[in-house]
Design a protein around this nucleic acid. Structure first.
Length: 324
DNA sequence: TTCCAGGACATTT
DNA sequence: AAATGTCATGGA
């Protein structure tokens, strides 16, 4: 069985303020998490304002709008926007959610030890210190997002997600703003390809997502069942057996949802472009070279990829790149 | 205009 | 088994 580290950080609940403090590891940067979450203005699954993230999460069937901000060093604060208090059991679940979302359970010390003297990673580890793999805890969301991202530019992928969520998800209004929850498999399994075609999904993307919704709706596929498998390799095989899920999608989901630190979407175009830029090459490195580059990073492939992706959005590493 | 983007699958050689 | 075509849109 794949056992996630269950060393939940300490939390304290202040009943009066309707808040929850979560202690974060030393190697955690809330700013880096915010940078990641701010990638697209079309993002519909959370809202960011003044260094605070607003997100609708579901606990025991209840939708709770939370606001997360950095309180002081090594502490982030979760505020319940409705001001109501929650009991300890719910607080624990919220803490668990945030911990998983922000990847607070991973010990990054070995990663940084490894990266410290690496010719490529040392700079990235320094520049983006505290960056963790921001997760997509919901398996259906992770799979749908990965399918939407297949072979289209990221902006269009966000457009598709926004249309999808606003068509089939649930919303909560607060202070004149809408907060969305991702559609459930059961919301999607019965719709038709045409309904997704209207949102400008390709027929294939529509079929893939309907197929995944049916598998998850029937219980044939679930995050829990994947985590019950012997290892991530078995989870990968299960994912690859599903129509529409190829190597890239499988590894992307292993990385963002199942938290496999060895997940390695080697064919990823963004990864190849990041390496091309960092190595100052005229062309993207070949797959075999990428494999060799990653060889010293065994066990931390997913983190290496995430830091390389991060480098693409960084002004500090941006150079006057010419195309192709 | 052309190329290809955080791919996967079907079809053709 | 490996190369090639297809999907849809958008940005450079």
């Amino acid at each position: 069985m794949i056992t996630p580290k269950k060393d939940t950080p300490a939390f304290s609940f202040d009943e009066c303020l309707g808040c929850l403090d979560i202690t974060t590891p030393k190697e955690f940067s809330f700013t880096e998490a915010l940078t990641h979450l701010s990638r697209s203005s079309l993002e519909c699954m959370h809202y960011i304002e003044n260094g605070k993230v607003f997100k609708l999460i579901e606990i025991d069937g209840d939708q709770i709008l939370i606001e997360i901000s950095e309180k002081e060093s090594a502490t982030i604060q979760v505020r319940f926007v409705d001001g109501k208090s929650r009991n300890d059991a719910v607080c624990e679940k919220i803490t668990g959610y945030v911990t998983e979302w922000f990847d607070l359970q991973t010990d990054l010390v070995p990663f940084y030890r490894m990266a410290k003297n690496d010719f490529l990673l040392s700079k990235l580890a320094k520049d983006f210190y505290g960056l963790r793999i921001v997760g997509i805890p919901d398996l259906f969301e992770a799979l749908c997002w990965a399918v939407m991202g297949q072979q289209v530019n990221l902006r269009f992928a966000y457009t598709l997600k926004k249309r999808f969520v606003e068509s089939f998800g649930q919303q909560v209004q607060w202070n004149g703003r809408q907060y969305w929850s991702f559609p459930k498999p059961s919301d999607i399994s019965a719709i038709s390809v045409d309904e997704l075609r209207k949102l400008q999904f390709t027929s294939k993307k529509a079929e893939y997502i309907l197929g995944i919704a049916k598998l998850m709706g029937s219980g044939e596929l679930s995050k829990e069942s994947l985590m019950l498998l012997n290892d991530f390799k078995a989870a990968e095989q299960k994912l690859l057996s599903i129509r529409g899920i190829g190597p890239w999608t499988a590894h992307y989901v292993l990385m963002r949802c199942l938290r496999d630190a060895t997940a390695f979407p080697i064919g990823d175009a963004g990864l190849q472009n990041a390496l091309k830029q960092l190595l100052d090459r005229a062309q993207k490195p070949a797959l075999e070279e990428i494999r060799q580059l990653f060889d010293p990073w065994k066990g931390w492939e997913a983190y290496a990829v995430f830091y390389l992706w991060r480098s693409l959005g960084s002004p500090s590493t941006k150079s006057s790149s010419t195309k192709k």
